[in-house]
Design a binder for these strands. Structure first.
Lengths: 380, 380
DNA sequence: AGATAGTGTGAATCAGCGA
DNA sequence: GTCGCTGATTCACACTATC
């Protein structure tokens, strides 16, 4: 097996315990190969399963019986049933490998995505989004009998309904999109030009090679550096190439020797990006918790200081124990009092309350940030 | 029954043979009502079935106001199996009514569209396209836990694989789209403002009223004047209103009296129109939003590239996820970091940041323009 | 009258932690 | 497992109120 491993950065000390299948391509049928891997071992899955319902080689009927001459509708149903059985099998095997907070991405077109999506729901996957990949340069419809088929669909799902701890780099996606949240429709060109792998004769190595930009958004949005991403239909290894470049681990499963060969060469030439450029924004949720009392104790808001909302409609006073008291005399946390004066159920006191600082009002969240920075410096 | 009929243009001579249910709203359950209509009697079907949203508790906006959720009884199903049985029943009844060369449209979201699509395939419908309705003004994701759900999906299918004679007004669609083929992704605003039906108290009559522009494109693309369009989930009658305006016949089936009443009033006020309506079908947009990450992923600004302002006073470097980090270590969007290094509240990062290109500095807005040209798409 | 600021709202499967 | 508290979170428009 060629050395495809991305440098093991964050887990350098654990290198000896890294499973031997990490950052490799496993040859064989994906269902049986997935069954041989340990459960709960991958953080994310990206799957680009065969779309064509007539791919006999990829499909095995539940019973290997030969079907007599039947009418079209029945034959169609048979082939759908075979595709469904195949889909259920690989999705089940994939689900077993997924960590409880892992997520799965599956890409398809109208030929297969409805069946895949319904089976995913049946198996308990919980849809987070369906994403539309809008192709900026799709193939035209030559016969003029339909709309130009200009998109494909991705389904992004967590392992089950109650898995709330999945990774979604919301802040990074928003920052990357001019500070408005990333939508469910993505625009990318199809894979062409130098990115498209060609064989010696100049014909494309793989019929449906996906653009690296698409995989990059998938990986950057839903995984963290050091995570492991499984691709059970590895093909020419776009998932692995982007994962390696972005400091993630990968596992690929592929049956065809020619694809494995192309993917191996490709992966060897990928240089991981410097870790400095892979850092993503720290979600606010993950920042250290600072009690309001710490702001008081730090002297930034001495007891007795008057707080007010941004428009000066409500007032409260800071008390020594880290509670505040509204003018009506009710004392509680900054959040509770903020909610109560407005007559709401909830309120983020950090962004609601302000303090007069010279001529202007300053939101107390800035004071929390000062305390956080002091804590960081002291190495706490 | 009030007179809702559209003037019978092409079939004036046949007016005496026009069935009594044409251009009317039939009250009742759609499965049994469809069973009472003659087979092969409609040219097209537009169906907006319940989506089977499975909503948990309340959802509040950041300002603590409550989102008015779709919690109507008609959208509740006990299980996927119950939803599937319902779907199979109405699709079977609908298929019986469809003429051999008729087509069916079904709209849904990721909650239901996969199941609907799979069942349609099982019943023998032949998918012609899946169409993405991109909403120009979708509701945000308030908790930042997913991508903004900014689209819905329509499936367009013929009665069976061998039905080749269906109507598709290819040239009209192409002409309406600046003389390039109409794509499978359509951009329309959601139904708001004066078009949105309100009750006496000013609250929306129907929770999921669809925009007329969407129905107009459906009807203009796949039916001819004088055709009959069935809507088994008529609601407040958008399908009927647009059909009447465009010189088509309609049949609506609806259970709720309040919706029937609103639809009846609405239909009476519709005036049939000439087909210059086409022009409203292609909403013109300003230049498409290009995420900064797309410039990074396009290879124009590889991660690690140093950015600087026009005078070289401040520096930052590009990170893989589309954020940038200043030399002081602060990371955020190109706009935020630009603002912060200057000590300003806001900054247009596209025009502030430059990159060294040979000997000269090049503003990154030029790179955005390059990406725009690469991904130029009508209606983007 | 016209500009500006403020408010309302849409098919939504929308927390995490510690006690 | 439940309960309770902290505190994180919104885009594009249409419409209304105010200056």
């Amino acid at each position: 097996m060629p050395q495809l491993r991305s440098p093991s950065r964050s887990s350098a000390a654990l290198a000896t315990t890294q499973p031997e299948w990490l950052d490799t391509i496993i040859k064989g049928d994906c269902v049986s190969r997935m069954a041989a891997l340990p459960a709960h071992s991958v953080d994310a899955i990206f799957a680009d399963p065969p779309y064509n319902l007539q791919l006999g080689g990829d499909l095995t009927r539940p019973d290997q019986s030969k079907v007599d001459a039947v009418d079209d509708a029945w034959d169609q149903f048979e082939s759908f049933a075979a595709y469904d059985a195949f889909t259920r099998a690989w999705l089940l095997a994939a689900r077993r490998l997924l960590k409880p907070n892992g997520t799965i991405w599956v890409i398809g077109s109208y030929h297969n995505i409805f069946r895949v999506g319904a089976i995913m729901q049946d198996l308990g996957f919980w849809t987070l989004n369906d994403i539309v990949w809008r192709k900026s340069n799709p193939m035209p419809n030559f016969r003029g009998r339909r709309f130009q088929n200009a998109h494909e669909t991705l389904i992004w799902a967590s392992k089950d309904k109650d898995a709330k701890g999945y990774t979604f780099n919301y802040d990074a996606m928003k920052a990357a999109n001019d500070d408005t949240q990333m939508r469910s429709d993505w625009l990318f060109p199809i894979c062409t030009g130098g990115e498209r792998l060609k064989d010696a004769e100049g014909s494309k190595t793989h019929p449906t090679q996906k653009p690296e930009a698409l995989l990059a958004r998938v990986i950057l949005s839903s995984t963290r550096p050091g995570d492991t991403i499984l691709d059970p239909f590895f093909g020419t290894g776009t998932t692995g190439a982007v994962a390696k470049r972005l400091g993630r681990h990968f596992v690929g499963i592929e049956r065809e020797d020619s694809y494995i060969e192309a993917a191996t060469d490709r992966l060897l030439s990928v240089e991981p990006l410097d870790a400095d450029f892979l850092q993503t924004l720290t979600p606010k949720r993950a920042e250290p918790r600072v009690p309001f009392s710490s702001v008081v104790e730090a002297g930034l808001l001495p007891p007795g200081t008057e707080l007010t909302d941004a428009k000066g409609r409500w007032q409260a006073h800071v008390r020594a124990d880290g509670t505040i008291a509204s003018s009506t005399g009710e004392a509680a946390s900054i959040h509770r009092v903020g909610a109560r004066v407005q007559g709401l159920d909830a309120c983020n006191g950090w962004t609601f309350w302000h303090v007069r600082d010279g001529g202007r009002l300053r939101v107390i969240d800035e004071l929390r940030q000062i305390v956080r920075e002091r804590i960081a410096v002291s190495g706490a």
